[in-house]
């Protein structure tokens, strides 16, 4: 086994890693914004809003991310508004993230006991404030670990931008494999890089979760 090619292609792998991280971070931020809006829309909006938003979320969660990326990339050029691989991947990942994060937000809000909402409403506070100012902050101990966990998934999901030809880490690695004919070493290194990015975050999730549980912020479920 020849590991020297790793050193020879280190710069390329680094560029791929940078693209991967950039994709993940931007999609995470955009997805969080979208996800929050969707979650609040479903909680506070009427029945119509809930129906439409639920359908949209179920559509995204019920189909593979890979297909969604292709839909956006190939679909955009088919309707005459071509997108490059990077914007297409970003859009696809953001929409996907938005759907999954909206469920995380919704789940967190639901986990806060009904009594909190009732107490707020009984005091005469407007519904929007009760959700935004009372319930959501209390949902954070549940939401934050789940969001970090989702970000880990997002880092891994950027590998699917491979199918758009985007030079994120996996595509970059494949190109190197094809050139050097050493797929085993390269795929192992690729896996190692993803692991190095994701594993510390996994540990972080566990630490944050334990800390938040101990802090007593998580109200006992009655």
């Amino acid at each position: 086994m020849d590991w020297s090619i790793v050193g020879a292609n280190a710069t390329l792998l680094l560029w791929g890693t940078e693209t991967t991280i950039a994709l993940a971070v931007v999609a995470f931020v955009a997805g969080s914004a979208v996800g929050l809006l969707v979650a609040l829309g479903r909680v506070l909006g009427g029945r119509d809003a809930e129906l439409i938003l639920k359908a949209a979320v179920d559509l995204v969660r019920g189909s593979p991310l890979l297909v969604q990326l292709l839909v956006i990339y190939l679909g955009a050029s088919a309707v005459g508004l071509p997108l490059g691989p990077f914007p297409a991947a970003l859009l696809g990942l953001s929409v996907n993230a938005g759907a999954y994060l909206s469920e995380i937000f919704r789940g967190g809000i639901a986990s806060v006991s009904k009594g909190q909402t009732e107490a707020g409403l009984a005091l005469g506070l407007p519904r929007a404030y009760v959700v935004w100012g009372l319930v959501l902050p209390q949902a954070l101990p549940v939401i934050v670990p789940a969001m970090i966990g989702f970000f880990i998934g997002l880092l891994k999901d950027t590998s699917l931008a491979y199918v758009l030809g985007l030079l994120e880490l996996t595509r970059m690695g494949k190109n190197i494999m094809d050139r050097t004919f050493q797929p085993f070493e390269i795929s192992l290194v690729m896996a190692g890089i993803y692991f190095a990015l994701c594993f510390p975050l996994s540990l972080l999730v566990r630490v944050v979760d334990a800390r938040l549980r101990r802090s007593g912020l998580v109200q006992a479920r009655l």
């Binding site: 891994k156 590998s159 996996t170 494949k174 192992l188 896996a191 993803y194």
Partner: peptide, 23 residues
């Protein structure tokens, strides 16, 4: 468990399909 959960499925597929033939 930790290795699988912290690496993408596509990379795992490449490892099996493209990498293992080296072995």
């Amino acid at each position: 468990v930790e290795v699988i959960r912290n690496t993408p499925g596509l990379v795992q597929l490449f490892l099996v399909y493209l990498g293992l033939p080296n072995l």
